[in-house]
Design a protein around this nucleic acid. Sequence first.
DNA 1: CGTAATCTATGACGTATGGTTAGAGTCAAC
DNA 2: GTTGACTCTAACCATACGTCATAGATTACG
Lengths: 252, 252
Amino acid sequence: MYKVKEVSSIVGVSVRTLHHYDRIGLLEPETTTPSGYRLYTDQNLERLQQILFFKEMDFSLQEIKEILDRPDFDRKKALKTHKEVLLKKKNRIEKMIKTVNKTLASIEGGIKMENKEMFNGFDMKEIEEHQAKYAEEAKQKYGESYEKTIQKTKNYTKEDWKNITEEANGIYNKLASRMEFGPEDEQAQKAIHEWRQHITKYYYECTIDVFRGLGDMYVADVRFTNNIDKNKDGLAEFMKQAMHVYCDKHTD
Amino acid sequence: MYKVKEVSSIVGVSVRTLHHYDRIGLLEPETTTPSGYRLYTDQNLERLQQILFFKEMDFSLQEIKEILDRPDFDRKKALKTHKEVLLKKKNRIEKMIKTVNKTLASIEGGIKMENKEMFNGFDMKEIEEHQAKYAEEAKQKYGESYEKTIQKTKNYTKEDWKNITEEANGIYNKLASRMEFGPEDEQAQKAIHEWRQHITKYYYECTIDVFRGLGDMYVADVRFTNNIDKNKDGLAEFMKQAMHVYCDKHTD
DNA sequence: CGTAATCTATGACGTATGGTTAGAGTCAAC
DNA sequence: GTTGACTCTAACCATACGTCATAGATTACG
């Protein structure tokens, strides 16, 4: 039988935490002394272990309570579900690390990123602006279609942008899902074709040559790479390759 | 100039959040209409971008405020610091994933782990109990030394356990650091010798045969494997091999 | 122009997980 | 019996908003 302080130092949780768990009924001491001191048994400690385990797994105390109090609870399922969550978290963190790395690289490399590009990846608006930039970017390299792009994009409403963005995301997703099959994969090639049409439709006439150059830019310019890789790591590179394959086929 | 709802749908944060950010002075709208409506500029949106970026990095709103309000703020340093944090997080999550995987594997393999062993790895007490179990485990296979072990371990104080655990961890670490040099590495063999002495000293007389059997158990019994591999992945297997090498040499 | 639908504002309470006093009783030791 | 270490409950604090509730402002439509 352990008193709070003992449990605290043995297990490494605060006394307050034990009070808290008691109050919410997550971990009630086996008994109490006449004077009200909480007395924990080894069994209680085991339960505490389990609580800590699930807590480490980011279950909420409420969830933990439910899990531990329902013996018929499907732990396996719960664990699997949580594994998914963990994997997603991991991916998110990895992305963040990459963003930080790239940002650091830019700072050190003296590449002056505008704030807008530096702090991207969090919303539609950003994506929209990026895409507007794509057009601008392309225009500077391929001059002629500049005016047209401006004309087009200037009059888009917010509604329009939303649709455009959604369509673009659809294509990205399709591509991301085919990455494992290589750049020549038929589905991927179809998606690339859609991509080109998308650009033509909403931004500027995307000739084969422009399209090829655009592909190169996707890996050459950090801003593009960052933005595209937000969908899936390595997608930019994959797109470039697939776009090359596409352009080689379509003399068009 | 955007009103709250617009900002909300453009950027993807709730109106309440905007209210909140306004109240705490993190993001104040450029102006308000006579009737008190908040009006945000594009500049405000940019700041919001930055806020979201840092939030994603797990800075608190307070910290973000300080960062954004100090123009001389050293972003590079902040980013580096945060990269560290992210890496640590990533490691933790990876560990969690491994634990979940192992747990799932055990469940699926029908290996009945006791809860105690299933939910370990979070405190000294656990480690202590594990080590006591090692002894027990060994005793059941090698009957004779049972009584002695019980005698010994029963009287250990918490202080004792702490020391024992520390010593054990020291040996684990030594071994983990020599893994790359193979099981015959001299340093590793020395550590293995220490390990045997450690067991003899604190648990039970560890004859060569018992020691060899113990090594096998490290990889045969998930509970041992899990526990040992917490120090470093593959350590259990490495220890087994090194123990075999050791036992082959020492006919003793 | 009137009215309904939509948007906005403030205020205040709720949530989750404890940290942090504060006041007061308890226990063991010297 | 006094001190010091522990324990109890109660209550407020912090984070980052969610969720009403109430009420005024704006816009849309017939």
